[in-house]
């Protein structure tokens, strides 16, 4: 268990097979490695992410609808010495609070956003999210998501990088590779600590409860199906559409670091 976890609150409150604890493990280990437990403020949002409100031995604030981003923005501006992390789901970050993600990236706000993408609204019972895959069945797309009617899945890190340019560190990891995810989170935190701008890491995550999948199928989904739609890697460089410039080489580099 990461040192920065609050052990007295474990076992955690997430469903069996949920990806959140793995994403929070990556964050906890990143905080431990950087030895910043006394400086990090953890903000979490509505939906399943709120279950993390007492997850860490970190000062923590819970709010909703992606407003965790402006709360952290205000906090960081008030106390630049704090390291502010906003944790949320794809609904908060890409739908109801998307304006905050967009504007934080544009303004190069010196905060870090860690967003769990499980392609669904989980806490509310399995509705279509901005990240729902084409054809994916949810409670509000019972016949499968039709991109003709509801658009394509949102690609957040690509968008953030495209909006903010050089001042933005953006990456997409997965709970299927916690070591790589931790590496991205560490880079994001360093980006903030060095005052280089906005940092954003999306973690592909699992929701067997709402996906209605067994263990093998859940892992197949997050390891194979999701990365086909959401490329893993760091985003930036000169790719005009904001797509990963060289995701494969980045993948190797990420996997090789402790």
């Amino acid at each position: 268990m990461p040192r920065s976890w609050a052990t007295e609150n474990k076992p955690h409150r997430f469903c069996p097979g949920c990806g959140h604890p793995l994403a929070l493990k990556a964050l906890g280990e990143a905080v431990d490695d950087l030895d910043i437990q006394g400086r990090v403020i953890f903000g979490c949002d509505i939906g399943c992410s709120l279950l993390a409100w007492d997850f860490f031995n970190l000062d923590s604030v819970q709010t909703h609808h992606g407003r965790t981003i402006p709360v952290m923005v205000g906090m960081k501006r008030a106390r630049p010495g704090l390291i502010c992390v906003a944790y949320m789901g794809d609904g908060g970050g890409y739908a109801i609070g998307a304006q905050h993600l967009v504007s934080a990236a544009l303004r190069h706000e010196q905060i870090t956003v860690l967003l769990a993408n499980n392609s669904i609204y989980a806490m509310t019972g399995g509705q279509m999210a901005p990240t729902t895959l084409p054809g994916q069945k949810t409670e509000t797309t019972p016949f499968g998501r039709d991109p003709e009617k509801t658009g394509r899945p949102t690609r957040g890190p690509e968008m953030a990088r495209l909006l903010g340019g050089e001042g933005v560190y953006a990456a997409r990891g997965t709970v299927a590779n916690v070591r790589q995810l931790k590496n991205y989170v560490k880079k994001a935190l360093r980006h903030q600590m060095e005052g280089r701008g906005f940092s954003f890491v999306e973690a592909l995550s699992t929701c067997p409860t709402n996906w209605r999948t067994g263990a093998a199928e859940t892992w197949e989904w997050v390891e194979k199906k999701m990365p086909a739609e959401f490329p893993l890697g760091e985003f930036g460089g000169d790719a005009p559409d904001g797509r990963a410039s060289r995701p494969e080489s980045v993948l190797r580099e990420g996997g090789g670091e402790g």
């Binding site: 609050a6 709120l50 409100w53 860490f56 031995n57 000062d59 923590s60 604030v61």
Partner: peptide
């Protein structure tokens, strides 16, 4: 008066501030 980010490592030197709306 600060609600978060007071001196000391949370969980080590002092209890963490866990502030929620839920």
């Amino acid at each position: 008066e600060a609600y978060v980010g007071r001196p000391g490592v949370p969980g080590v030197a002092r209890p963490p501030a866990h502030l929620r709306n839920t």
